[in-house]
Amino acid sequence: MGAGLEALKRVRSARLGGMGIADLGFFTLAGVTLVLLAAQAVINPTQFAQVFVFGLADGAIYALVALGYTMVYGIIELINFAHGDVFTLSAYIGAALIAFFSTSENAFSFGNVIALLVVFPVVMLIMGVINVGIERVAYRPLRNAPRLAPLITAIGMSFTLEGIMFVWHGPATVHVPNLLPHGPGWETYIGGVFIGFKDVFVVVAAAVLVALLAVFINRSKLGKAMRATAQDRDASQLMGIDINRTIAATFFIGALLAGAGGIIWGLYFNTITYNLGFRTGLIAFTSAVFGGIGNIPGAALGGLVIGLIAAFSDNYIGPKWTQVVVFGILIAVLVFRPTGLLGMRVPEK
């Protein structure tokens, strides 16, 4: 309670009331970016639309990973650095499980459907259990320790998971079978823009998962407990909420989403490496902060926006500058709007 809440209130009233200097800066920045993009859209609409599709698909996956960061931060104020590696590990486990099925990469077969229907829930569950295990081993014992201690164990868990994947498959690229429908008949040009079934699948799957999460958080009893715990842990405990169970559930659900994201990534790009999670995790965490840490719609929006920014930067400016562009925009946004796009929601102290 106190200063933080006051600041939040100020931001909120500034948003509802007249525009402050910060908001003016923010909207100017957003406006300039949009005008530049709109100019490109007019110059070459096909190219613009195509990059938009790529960015949307990437952003959808970032959003799935970002949700795990934001949920965990929202409830225990921990940056779970291992989350990006949970994402990668799920793609590794997914690839290993797919090998047990009779599948075809050349044509979309019945075997592929069975494999996908089995592998998705199984990997998501496995990842959920692993993430709850990580929480139990590396974070729960440190819950009341100084803030830096669990931060370090989180980095440690990240390297541990990367190490496991390194030992498992070595440094080279691992192939994830191309099980989703692709090739002629599953791909089309709409107004010159190439769209495959895979692109649609990624975006729809992510949207469905985010929608399910939103319903769960807002409607279910456990979701309510999670929101309560995020708001005030001690008060929730006094009201009879099992804090340990609620936090474990948060990790479980975060890993379900990262697990789904990992398999989707694998099926989409078909190549993964053991350290994929480092960069993806960084981008996803950035998305979570961008959207307002602790804020679930914010993380989804942040993921989409960063996916789009990265794609446009890759295409119009050059990949060498993409990281600079993404983080430059992040700095500018946070300077003008420290709580992120949709405002942060963190435990009240």
Binding site: Q47, V51, F54, A310, A311, D314, P319, T322
Partner: peptide, 11 residues
């Protein structure tokens, strides 16, 4: 920093 090359390829 790059794992999705499609926007570059599109350029």
């Amino acid at each position: 920093q790059t794992s999705d090359f499609r926007s570059i390829l599109l350029a």
